[in-house]
Amino acid sequence: MEALTHFFVGLHIVGIGALLGGFMTQMKAMGAGEARIVPAMLHGALTMLVTGIALVGLNEADGRTVDHIKIGVKLTLLVVILALVYVKRDEERLPAPVFGTIGLLTVANIFIAVMWV
């Protein structure tokens, strides 16, 4: 069970990397007002959602305590990120505040995961 949990943690980190990496590749374009959602951002957010749900299930099945408030906050942020990415994925240009919000929420989600004990 522990190996499976580590596998899903690794996939979760890959999803975070895809979402944040996709955002970072568009930072220069965001400054010029030409940022757009790249496919890696959508796939990364979906990977985070699926693996996050799997991790909660695996931890609860293994008898570990899960901080449901922390998971709820992270899930809420991720659902907002996913909604923004999904709805705006076909637009050629995104306003900088909308695109910046995606990056800000992604970084907030990472810091919540790491710092909320």
Rank of each mutant, 00 (worst) to 15 (best):
A61C: 01
W116N: 07
L105R: 04
G17V: 06
G17C: 07
D62E: 12
V80N: 02
A40Y: 05
D90Y: 10
D67G: 08
G57S: 08
I69D: 02
M1I: 10
P97D: 12
P39Y: 04
A45P: 11
K88G: 00
L49F: 13
I13K: 00
V56G: 03
L94A: 12
L11S: 03
V79M: 11
G100L: 06
L82T: 15
A83G: 14
A40F: 08
V80I: 15
I37Y: 07
K88F: 13
K70G: 05
M48G: 14
T106I: 04
A18T: 10
H6K: 14
E34V: 04
G33V: 14
T76A: 15
G10W: 03
T25Y: 07
L20H: 02
G100Y: 07
E34R: 04
V66Y: 01
P95W: 02
L94V: 12
E34L: 08
M30N: 12
M48V: 14
I13L: 13
M30T: 14
K28A: 15
I69W: 06
A113Q: 02
A54M: 14
M30D: 14
T101I: 01
V85F: 06
A83T: 14
I81F: 06
I110C: 01
I110P: 00
V9Q: 08
A35D: 03
F111W: 09
K74D: 05
E92M: 12
D67A: 13
H43A: 13
V79N: 01
A113M: 02
I53A: 15
A29D: 15
A40I: 04
A83D: 07
V117S: 08
F7S: 04
T5S: 07
E34S: 08
T106E: 02
T5N: 02
A108M: 11
M48H: 03
A32T: 09
